[in-house]
Amino acid sequence: MSARRLADDQPSSFEMTPETRARLDRIISKYPEGRQASAVISALWLAQKQNDYWLPRAAIEKVADTLGMPYIRVLEVATFYTMFNLEPVGKYFIQMCGTTPCMLSGSDGIKALLERRIGAQRKVTDDGMFSWLEVECLGACCNAPMVQINDDYYEDLTVENFTTLLDNLAAGRPVETGSQTGRVASEPTGGLTALTSLYGADGKSGPQSLKK
């Protein structure tokens, strides 16, 4: 990690859409009068989501004005949390987990693929489709290795299925979130080993197993 700074190229203004504003107002109303500053992380998050997953200076100042906070207080929060992107990201922003369980399960291959296909971290591809970042544990260790693309987790990755996934995203084809091997949640990869009499014949549990 290195010192995080605001991006060099900044849009001149930022306005919250009515939907964002309505969601923010609902969040602010959860806090007592005079404690609106408590909503700062949610507000930044909404602003980031609205602004293609990154926070320009104007958005930071807008949030500060909305919550009645000094600008520096909001900047502190925005620079503290690495999930606030201070520079533009690709349409598909890939956060790759490289922490121990993922690394043991082959995240090095995923990382090499990203480097080959997209380039250096934080750099957006020329077509604006992809950028990626290695992050710390995202808490899906049972399904390692995994990445988060925008809001969704993509798990049980291999170099092959991840290549397919990226191809599909680039081509605009629909993709399946979650496990890329068809596994349900974090159940055993080879099918259920217990309680098999209670669930579907395919050895999977829950509604998915009854779907077909």
Binding site: A3, R4, R57, P70, I72, R73, L75, T79, F80
Partner: peptide, 20 residues
Amino acid sequence: GTSDMGAIGRGEDMEITTYL
């Protein structure tokens, strides 16, 4: 009462500064 100074970044990269 002006809240000029702040600490941006975190951990080893924490830096004391005014807003921009």
